[in-house]
Design a protein around this nucleic acid. Structure first.
Lengths: 183, 183
DNA sequence: TATTTTAGTTAGATAATCTAATTATATGTA
DNA sequence: TACATATAATTAGATTATCTAACTAAAATA
């Protein structure tokens, strides 16, 4: 996780450069066949993504939970009563190793937000479920989560939103294809 | 950092839900005054940001370096011969604690990519510089970095790019203001 | 000069990941 | 059916990126 808090103050700070020096550097160092405009956008997206994650983490902090654990609880919520959810399938969906899921589930179970039940059909499998307490946490956190999501995007004009929606959907599906993951 | 590698395979996977179930959940659980459209966009941005970071990390992996150390080297590169760069000013710029910077610098110094020099003017201060070896690493990694940035954004039409550029610049500056950080 | 502030580090902790090894249960084949 | 193989989950041990609190040394201030 990245738990970036307030930073201490210094007398001689590094000046904020903005994006221009990065673009100058790109001009000198990118391969010929690299599309400068696209790289520029990608760099902005990277910065924005970093910041978006920080905003969400800052908001979830109040609930004693991080984005990564939040993802697990959301998955359990959305798939509840539909699929049998195992640590393996969570690992698969989250794009992390089973061992990492074990650690996440240990943490969540210790706080009584999830339970593990041995499957009766296949003794190797564990059935992971959100508990009532977990459901209550999610219910408290969801409104804050949505408002944090929207705060990332405030300041957009109506017109810009429409365009952005189309573009983000497109980018997301192409990237998921590239990385071989998906929500 | 997040070092998400390939995930193992399971027989019964969780189906990919896509965004619709998230939007349904939002309908039920967002506050009245939360703009649904904006929250939808924010959610997409969050996902996209996660993925963008993964793409960049995957590409930097070849150079034995992570995004966070890459950020340090880029800062040192861009400010070289302009400002005196101290651990404090790096902490300030990166939005992390001085102690965290010490750890990053220890790691980079061990690999001879940076050096620390005691300031002659102020005995408390350390002057951090990128070394020749560090410069060479950056020179090798930069073309890959730019091409990774552009790969995040490939598949966009010319028209979409123009719009996106304006929007991303705007969002980024508003978010930096909100978080009190900046590049 | 004595006190306070600043810069950097150290020590010790937590979170989120990893790989490799281990255990138990299924499955499949000879 | 028995043995070998595959699968699911966990454990053990490591790394990375962060944190806070305490410490040391140097500079600034009162």
């Amino acid at each position: 996780m990245s738990r970036k808090n307030k930073c201490e103050h210094t007398s001689d700070q590094l000046p904020k450069l903005g994006i221009q020096p990065y673009l100058n550097l790109m001009e000198k160092t990118a391969l010929q066949n690299t599309d400068r405009k696209l790289a520029h956008l990608g760099l902005l997206m990277l910065w924005l993504g970093d910041n978006a994650i920080d905003v969400i983490d800052l908001n979830l902090e109040k609930f004693g939970i991080t984005e990564c654990k939040w993802d697990v609880l959301l998955l359990l919520t959305l798939h509840e009563d539909r699929e049998l959810i195992t640590p393996s399938s969570l690992a698969d969906r989250l794009g992390i190793r089973r061992a990492s899921v074990t650690a996440l589930l240990d943490w969540l179970e210790k706080r009584h937000w999830i339970i593990r039940e041995q499957s009766t059909l296949d003794g190797r499998k564990i059935h992971v479920k959100i508990t009532q307490e977990g459901r209550e946490l999610v219910a408290r956190a969801l409104p804050v989560f949505w408002s944090a999501c929207s705060s990332i995007m405030s300041e957009l004009e109506e017109e810009e939103r429409m365009l952005l929606e189309k573009i983000l959907m497109k980018l997301n599906s192409s990237m998921e294809k590239k990385l071989g993951v998906g929500r």
